[in-house]
Amino acid sequence: MLTPSAEYEAPDLKKDFIVDSTVEHTTNGQTTGPSDHVLQAGAVDRDAPSEASQNAMGSLRSQLTTLQDDINVFLTERMKAQSNEADLDVERRLLDEGVDEDSD
Protein backbone atom coordinates (compact mmCIF):
# COMPACT_ATOMS: atom_id res chain seq x y z
CA MET A 1 0.00 0.00 0.00
CA LEU A 2 1.22 3.50 -0.83
CA THR A 3 1.81 6.05 1.91
CA PRO A 4 0.51 9.60 1.40
CA SER A 5 3.02 12.43 1.28
CA ALA A 6 3.16 16.11 0.40
CA GLU A 7 5.75 18.68 -0.60
CA TYR A 8 5.92 22.32 0.45
CA GLU A 9 8.07 24.69 -1.53
CA ALA A 10 8.67 28.40 -1.00
CA PRO A 11 11.48 30.61 -2.29
CA ASP A 12 13.40 30.10 0.96
CA LEU A 13 12.43 26.56 1.95
CA LYS A 14 11.46 23.14 0.68
CA LYS A 15 9.92 20.59 3.04
CA ASP A 16 8.66 17.05 2.50
CA PHE A 17 5.86 15.63 4.61
CA ILE A 18 5.83 11.85 4.88
CA VAL A 19 3.47 9.83 7.06
CA ASP A 20 5.09 7.20 9.28
CA SER A 21 3.15 4.09 8.32
CA THR A 22 4.57 2.12 11.27
CA VAL A 23 2.54 4.03 13.88
CA GLU A 24 -1.20 4.03 14.50
CA HIS A 25 -3.19 6.90 12.98
CA THR A 26 -6.67 8.22 13.71
CA THR A 27 -9.33 10.19 11.88
CA ASN A 28 -9.63 12.52 14.87
CA GLY A 29 -7.34 15.33 13.73
CA GLN A 30 -5.60 17.56 16.24
CA THR A 31 -5.85 20.69 14.09
CA THR A 32 -9.43 20.31 12.90
CA GLY A 33 -12.75 20.74 14.65
CA PRO A 34 -13.66 23.07 17.50
CA SER A 35 -10.93 24.35 19.82
CA ASP A 36 -10.47 22.86 23.27
CA HIS A 37 -11.75 26.13 24.73
CA VAL A 38 -15.04 25.82 22.83
CA LEU A 39 -15.43 22.16 23.76
CA GLN A 40 -14.75 22.90 27.45
CA ALA A 41 -17.45 25.56 27.32
CA GLY A 42 -19.93 22.81 26.51
CA ALA A 43 -20.07 22.81 22.72
CA VAL A 44 -20.66 19.49 20.99
CA ASP A 45 -18.66 18.64 17.86
CA ARG A 46 -21.46 17.50 15.57
CA ASP A 47 -19.05 17.18 12.65
CA ALA A 48 -16.60 14.85 14.40
CA PRO A 49 -15.34 12.19 11.99
CA SER A 50 -16.22 8.54 12.42
CA GLU A 51 -13.49 6.04 13.17
CA ALA A 52 -11.60 4.69 10.19
CA SER A 53 -12.59 1.31 8.80
CA GLN A 54 -10.17 -1.58 9.28
CA ASN A 55 -9.32 -1.79 5.58
CA ALA A 56 -6.99 -0.09 3.09
CA MET A 57 -9.28 2.91 2.55
CA GLY A 58 -9.75 3.42 6.29
CA SER A 59 -6.00 3.29 6.81
CA LEU A 60 -5.46 5.82 4.02
CA ARG A 61 -8.12 8.09 5.51
CA SER A 62 -6.46 8.13 8.93
CA GLN A 63 -2.99 8.63 7.41
CA LEU A 64 -4.32 11.61 5.45
CA THR A 65 -5.66 13.10 8.68
CA THR A 66 -2.18 12.81 10.20
CA LEU A 67 -0.64 14.36 7.08
CA GLN A 68 -3.12 17.25 7.25
CA ASP A 69 -2.26 17.82 10.94
CA ASP A 70 1.48 17.86 10.19
CA ILE A 71 1.01 20.39 7.38
CA ASN A 72 -1.34 22.58 9.44
CA VAL A 73 1.10 22.72 12.37
CA PHE A 74 4.04 23.51 10.08
CA LEU A 75 2.22 26.29 8.20
CA THR A 76 0.84 27.83 11.40
CA GLU A 77 4.32 27.97 12.93
CA ARG A 78 5.73 29.41 9.72
CA MET A 79 3.05 32.13 9.58
CA LYS A 80 3.70 33.03 13.23
CA ALA A 81 7.44 33.30 12.59
CA GLN A 82 6.91 35.49 9.52
CA SER A 83 4.46 37.69 11.44
CA ASN A 84 6.97 38.09 14.29
CA GLU A 85 9.70 39.02 11.80
CA ALA A 86 7.44 41.62 10.18
CA ASP A 87 6.54 43.08 13.58
CA LEU A 88 10.21 43.28 14.54
CA ASP A 89 11.04 44.96 11.22
CA VAL A 90 8.39 47.64 11.77
CA GLU A 91 9.58 48.14 15.35
CA ARG A 92 13.19 48.48 14.17
CA ARG A 93 12.25 51.08 11.58
CA LEU A 94 10.23 53.06 14.12
CA LEU A 95 13.07 53.04 16.63
CA ASP A 96 15.90 53.58 14.16
CA GLU A 97 14.33 55.97 11.68
CA GLY A 98 11.17 57.26 13.34
CA VAL A 99 9.22 56.08 10.30
CA ASP A 100 5.64 54.91 10.70
CA GLU A 101 4.31 53.58 7.40
CA ASP A 102 0.71 53.58 8.65
CA SER A 103 0.55 57.35 9.24
CA ASP A 104 -0.10 59.61 6.28
Rank of each mutant, 00 (worst) to 15 (best):
L67A: 03
L67Y: 04
E85G: 07
L39R: 11
D89T: 10
S83R: 11
R78C: 01
D70V: 02
L64E: 00
A41Y: 15
R61F: 08
D89I: 09
A41L: 10
Q68W: 03
Q54N: 10
S62A: 05
Q54Y: 03
L75W: 08
T66F: 00
M57K: 12
Q63H: 06
G58M: 00
H37T: 09
A86P: 00
L39A: 06
E85N: 12
S62K: 02
R61A: 15
A48P: 02
Q82V: 12
S83G: 10
D87Q: 07
A52M: 08
N72S: 11
D69E: 06
M57N: 07
T76Q: 05
D89R: 05
Q40K: 08
N84G: 08
K80T: 12
R61E: 07
S53L: 05
L64R: 01
E77C: 08
M57L: 08
M79G: 06
P49M: 13
D70M: 03
M79W: 08
N72F: 01
H37C: 11
S53M: 10
D89L: 14
L88M: 15
D87M: 15
L39Y: 13
M79A: 15
V38P: 01
L64G: 01
P49S: 07
Q40P: 01
S62L: 01
A56F: 03
